[in-house]
Design a protein around this nucleic acid. Structure first.
Lengths: 119, 119
DNA sequence: TCGATGCATCGACAGACGTCAATCAAAGGG
DNA sequence: CCCTTTGATTGACGTCTGTCGATGCATCGA
């Protein structure tokens, strides 16, 4: 395809996402991929959850560590976490009774690059 | 803690977005600022519009240049453009009959930085 | 002055979203 | 084995969002 002036899409990347944004005009599919990820970031609660996890000891946190800080019910927090995992921003690992969540740096890198207008 | 892995925001940007976030977890207000901007990016049509403008001749475009590429009605395109302007991602300038839209690089820089986990 | 053009606004509507209480499922501990 | 703990799922709710057609408001050309 002719589109590839910037915000390149790594076909071989570990994470499936994103070919933006100032290069050729983004086609519908690429725009959809990007928008899906950004939509997950478009809620203040989810931004706080990500911030909490990223700054937590060991870079991980379980639901029980997150419910109180954000001041929402446990089902709501679980709901947001699922969205973040589905968006590829977090990974989930079950250890015993607890579910530990960790950020996916590669995804953040890709999104960060997607917003860079200059090469 | 020692390594500052967080979702930071540059407080010194020329664009009004996002208060300085003192050291650790993002507070509610800061998270809200960030989320507002990302929410504007959370729609495929808006991502395409931004891409179209960023790659356009002279870095600007009017509604009439955007309606056909995205395949939506003029009112809908105007609606999206207003959201993008309100989010600080675009500026609008009326010249004669036409309204020209341009991207705001500083805002993209800020958001890009906010997604960087490593300092 | 009149008609055409470019956009914004309005009103409406279907679908998506954020939230909660209630419930369910699995893992540990006694 | 129960009973507690942790977290996911379900069902319901009010609100927000994306889209359109119709309309209003400037600006320009004739």
């Amino acid at each position: 395809m002719a589109t590839r002036t910037e915000l390149p899409l790594r076909p071989s990347g570990p994470v499936v996402c994103c070919a933006p944004m100032a290069g050729g005009v983004l086609e519908a599919e690429d725009a959809g991929q990007l928008a899906r990820a950004f939509k997950a970031l478009g809620d203040p609660t989810r931004v706080r959850l990500l911030s909490l996890i990223a700054t937590a000891e060991g870079g991980e946190a379980c639901i029980c560590n997150l419910t109180e800080p954000v001041g929402l019910s446990q089902p709501t927090v679980s709901h947001h976490m699922k969205l973040l995992v589905d968006a590829g921003l977090l990974t989930r690992e079950q250890r015993g009774k607890w579910a530990y969540y960790t950020v996916v740096p590669a995804m953040f890198d890709q999104l960060s690059d997607a917003l860079r207008l200059t090469r």
